[in-house]
C-alpha cells in the first residue's frame, strides 16, 4: 500500500520514487507546488478509488497523511 502510494505520487510529480518517503510533502520538492498538490490528491483518489473531502485537503502535509484515508477503504 505504502509503496503504491509513493509510486503514484512519483508518477504525478515526474520524479524518481527514491526521492520520496512517507514524510515528504508539498514544499519539500520544488516541483510539488500547489498545482501539483491538487494533481497528487486527484490521482490518489482515482488510483485508490477514494474521495478526500475538500475541507480536509489542507490537512494533507505529508504522503503519510493519505494513509489515513486508504486504511478506511475496504
Amino acid at each position: 500500500m505504502e509503496e503504491r502510494l509513493i509510486a503514484t505520487v512519483a508518477s504525478v510529480l515526474r520524479v524518481p520514487k527514491s526521492t520520496l518517503t512517507l514524510h515528504t510533502g508539498p514544499g519539500d520538492l520544488e516541483v510539488w507546488d500547489s498545482l501539483a498538490q491538487i494533481n497528487v490528491i486527484c490521482e490518489i483518489e482515482a488510483e485508490f478509488g477514494i474521495s478526500i473531502p475538500v475541507e480536509q485537503v489542507t490537512e494533507i502535509r505529508h504522503i503519510r497523511d493519505f494513509l489515513h484515508y486508504l486504511e478506511k477503504t475496504p
Binding site: 498545482l35 491538487i38 494533481n39 490528491i41 490521482e43 482515482a46 475538500v54
Partner: peptide, 12 residues
C-alpha cells in the same frame, strides 16, 4: 473537485 480547488476544469 479540481475546479473548486484550483480553477482546473478537467480531471487528471
Amino acid at each position: 473537485k479540481r475546479w473548486y480547488l484550483g480553477g482546473l476544469r478537467f480531471s487528471t
